[in-house]
Every structure is written in C-alpha cells, then in structure tokens.
C-alpha cells in the first residue's frame, strides 16, 4: 500500500510517498515503523505503548485524527495519507509540540484537592459506584490531543484551554473526593475557558476513547454559571 506522508524538516514542508507491503492485521503504526526501519530512517513520529493507552501516536490519517496504533490498515483506502495533527505546531514530520497542551492541563489542577489528608495516618476515601460513574468516563482520557486538533475554537485561539484540559477539569470537579472545585471553576470560566466553546462538537466525533469531551465542557459550563450566579447573590 502507498503511504503519503506530510513531512517537515524544520524549514520546509513536503510530501513523500512510500510503498509498504501490508498484510491483514497490520496497523498504521506498524507501517510507520516499517518505513523507518527499512525505507527511510529520517522519518519521525511519536509512539510508545502500541495499544491505545499512552496517547502519543495520534496523527491525521486520511483527513481524520486517529491513534496510529489502533487504526487497521485494512480499513483504509489506498493511498493512506498521514499528516501531523492540526492546531499544533509541527516540530518534525509527524511530531507536534505538546508543551502548551500539557501546560493547559496543569493549569486546571488535575488532581484531587483536600485539606484533610494526613500522610501519617492515611484513611481510605470511600466512594460509591454511583459517585464513580459520575466521572469515570472522563477519567479515560489519554491526552492524545485529537480533540484539540479538530476544535474550531482552538484553531483560532492558541490560549483556549481546549477540550482535553476541560475534560480533566470536569473529571476532578465531578469527583466526590475532591473538596475544592472553586479554584478550578475560576480558571475555566475565564474568557479563554468554556466560553470559547460553541458546541461544534468535533471533539466528541474524533475522540478515540469516545468520552464526549463536548459534554464535559457543557457540564463544566453549567457549573461555572451556577457558580457566578451564586457569587452575584453572595451565597
């Protein structure tokens, strides 16, 4: 099968084609490895787990962002067009800059906040299955960036927190063990936060983990609204 890859060497962007002998069961990632090992050792791409867990291999395949390690070659039309993710700065070939992406993730405090944790005499934090169900789905995010790459708001606003970071914010706000969501709400209701979302919902369409980032953003927006109304009346 023919692989058409959009490459970038730091200065120029160009297309290059490779002929890969494929067989049933092969993934796009395996083909990229094949190219690098046998045809062109200068091809750069990111990957680690090869099993849809680490989220490093997301690339644009035939126009849609997908995890290369979970995309079967047999499902695709020849030629297979592979490009780096949109809405990110390309560093080399298929490798894009995730620095801003993770900085935004950090910004929403993606950890449980409590003031009663005593490490000397640790206690178990109990949670019912129902409470778990409230955020479980959103905890499956693997930070692959596919959602951000198709988000029209992220396309024109570099500082927009973006679906992935907002999913993380909601995941912790909806966690019954988390005791202080207010800080997070303040951050996500800045004008770079939830208000930039206009429900194009492209993120939900492409998320490889099917976690509906668009819904998380809306639920977060609901929290932000309630928070600001409460603040107005000083509850």
């Amino acid at each position: 099968m023919e692989f058409r890859i959009r490459r970038f060497d730091g200065e120029n962007s160009f297309w290059q084609s490779y002929e890969v002998p494929t067989k049933k069961g092969m993934t796009v990632l395996e083909c990229l490895y094949y190219i690098r090992d046998n045809l062109d050792s200068t091809l750069s791409f990111r990957a680690s787990c090869r099993m849809g867990i680490c989220g490093s291999c997301a690339v644009k395949i035939n126009g849609k962002p997908k995890l290369a390690c979970e995309t079967q070659v047999s499902e695709l039309k020849n030629p297979i067009v592979v490009e780096p993710l949109d809405n990110f700065k390309v560093l080399k070939d298929l490798v894009v800059d995730f620095e801003g992406f993770f900085a935004k993730h950090k910004m929403v405090k993606p950890f449980i906040v409590r003031d009663d944790i005593d490490y000397n005499s640790p206690v178990e934090l109990i949670q019912t299955p129902k409470e778990l169900a409230k955020y479980y789905n959103y905890s499956l995010c693997i930070k692959c960036g596919a959602c951000v790459s198709v988000c029209p708001a992220a396309a024109t606003s570099e500082d927009y927190l973006g679906p992935a970071a907002l999913v993380a914010a909601y995941r912790f706000c909806a966690d019954s063990r988390d005791k202080d969501c207010k800080d997070r709400i303040e951050i996500i209701s800045s004008e770079r936060g939830v208000w930039r979302c206009h429900s194009a919902m492209a993120c939900s369409e492409v998320c490889p983990k099917k976690i509906e980032p668009a819904k998380a953003v809306q639920l977060l927006r609901r929290k932000a609204i309630i928070h600001s109304i409460k603040k107005l009346f000083r509850w």
Binding site: D159, L161, S189, S190, E191, R192, W195, I225, S228, I229
Partner: peptide, 17 residues
C-alpha cells in the same frame, strides 16, 4: 494566560442572555 483573566464576570451572563 487564563490565570490573568480569571476575574471574568460578564461572560456567563452574556452566554445566558
């Protein structure tokens, strides 16, 4: 970035309206 503009009072009401 977002931290600087955290004090944002009008956006929620603009959205509601």
């Amino acid at each position: 970035m977002a931290e600087k503009s955290a004090k944002n009072v009008l956006e929620p009401y603009a959205w509601l309206l």
